[in-house]
C-alpha cells in the first residue's frame, strides 16, 4: 500500500513538473516576480468545469472576478447560509486554503470536492483564476 501511495505521489509530482516545465502556452510575469504558467493552471481548471463556468452561474458560481470578492458575495447565485454569512474575502491565500480542503475551511459549503493536495497544483490553478478579472477577454 505504501509503495502504491509513493508511486501515485511520484506520478503526481512528475505530471505537475511536466506541465510546468515543458508545456507551452501563456506565461506571464506578475509584480511578485514569479513566473507563472497560465496554461498549466488552465489545464487544472478542467477539474472545475463540472460545476463552474467563468462567466455564468451553474451548479457552482461563476469564477470571473473571484479574487477580491467576498465569499458567497456574488449576486444571482444561491449560496448556503454558511457561505453567505462568511466574512472571508477571496484572495490567493484564502483560495489556497479553500482549495486544499473546502469542507475543512467552510463546513457548510455545497462544494462537494475533497480538495487538491498538491500545493504546486493549487498555486498553478490560483495563478489561472487570478487572471480572470474584468479585463480578461474571457470574462467579457
Amino acid at each position: 500500500m505504501k509503495i502504491i501511495c509513493q508511486f501515485i505521489a511520484l506520478v503526481t509530482l512528475l505530471s505537475g513538473s511536466q506541465s510546468n516545465v515543458f508545456s507551452g502556452g501563456e506565461t506571464k510575469k506578475y509584480n511578485s516576480g514569479n513566473n507563472v504558467n497560465i496554461a498549466a493552471g488552465k489545464d487544472i481548471y478542467v477539474q472545475c468545469i463540472g460545476c463552474h463556468s467563468l462567466t455564468y452561474h451553474r451548479t457552482g458560481p461563476k469564477h470571473c472576478g473571484l479574487i477580491g470578492r467576498k465569499v458567497g458575495g456574488v449576486s444571482g447565485f444561491e449560496f448556503t447560509p454558511e457561505m453567505k454569512n462568511s466574512t472571508i474575502i477571496w484572495s490567493r491565500e484564502t483560495l489556497n486554503q479553500f482549495l486544499k480542503d473546502p469542507l475543512e475551511m467552510i463546513p457548510g459549503t455545497s462544494m462537494g470536492f475533497s480538495g487538491i493536495d498538491s500545493e504546486f497544483k493549487r498555486k498553478q490553478l490560483i495563478d489561472y483564476i487570478a487572471t480572470l478579472t474584468t479585463e480578461n477577454i474571457l470574462c467579457r
Partner: peptide, 9 residues
Amino acid sequence: RGAVSAYAG
C-alpha cells in the same frame, strides 16, 4: 468530463 472530475472529487 467535468462530471467525472466532480464525482472523483
